[in-house]
């Protein structure tokens, strides 16, 4: 097991809010990790920092030993929580674009997953249903042979069938060399898939523990514990 992600003393301030407050975090390989916290707790900020979409005010982040930059971007596969794909492009064009830029992109795997969903490569993204768009995004992200997958709210606002599809896709692509970070506030849907959960609250790390340990020690689900920790 090697350390994939290391955050040391990360602080990120926006004009008048502190989004992350001296956060320390380590993520090892071979794990599926839930990044849990209520809205505004700093989950997305942390994810953006990991992906180099924001810069921290202080502290350091390394992915496989590299600061966010070209080298880290080669090994991080990121699913944002919005429609980040160009809607006029066809599925095929997007696949080609990913294959062009990411050396670790497995085109055959992407097409295999797409054909199982009966999504035509010639379809324009804007003609796809919301559920299918989410699936295409996930397929693109999971078709990479990355070290760290960062999925921001992948199961928010999708129907149960899509949610199950997303979960089984994540499990199916599990690889002991890599880790998957899934941010969500819908814990009960996915807690059994997780090795470990990270609770963050107001930009601080509250807890990082394995799901089974939590259940063992508290005699309750992670979801129930979450509700307790984040009770106002």
């Amino acid at each position: 097991m090697s350390v994939l992600l290391r955050c040391e003393g990360i602080t990120k301030r926006y004009t008048n809010v502190v989004a992350l407050d001296n956060l320390d975090l380590t993520v090892e390989s071979g794990k599926i990790i839930g990044l849990l916290g209520p809205n505004g707790s700093g989950k997305t900020t942390l994810i953006k920092l990991i992906n180099g979409l924001l810069q921290a005010n202080s502290g350091s982040i390394t992915v496989c030993g590299n600061k966010p930059g070209v080298e880290s971007k080669k090994v991080v596969s990121y699913l944002p929580d919005n429609n980040f794909l160009n809607s006029w492009m066809t599925v095929e064009q997007i696949v080609n674009m990913f294959a062009d830029f990411y050396e670790d992109f497995r085109k055959d795997l992407a097409y295999e997953m797409l054909s199982r969903l009966a999504i035509e490569p010639t379809c324009k993204l804007k003609t796809l249903s919301k559920g299918n768009k989410e699936k295409v995004s996930l397929i693109l992200v999971m078709s990479r042979n990355a070290r760290l997958y960062v999925l921001d709210e992948p199961i928010a606002g999708v129907d149960p069938a899509t949610r199950d599809y997303i979960i089984s896709t994540i499990i199916n692509n599990y690889n002991p060399e890599a880790s998957v970070i899934i941010s969500t506030h819908l814990i009960s849907d996915i807690e059994e898939v997780l090795d470990e959960v990270i609770f963050i609250k107001q930009g601080r790390l509250v807890l990082q523990k394995s799901v089974d340990e939590i259940r063992e020690e508290n005699g309750k689900s992670v979801d129930a514990l979450f509700r307790e920790v984040f009770k106002w």
Binding site: N51, G52, L53, G69, V70, E71, K73, K74, V76, Y78, P80, N82, N83, F84, L85, N86, F101, Y102
Partner: peptide
């Protein structure tokens, strides 16, 4: 805009 999430996560300076 939204596309920037992809653009800026490409391994490009």
């Amino acid at each position: 805009k939204a596309e920037g999430y992809l653009t800026f996560t490409l391994p490009v300076t």
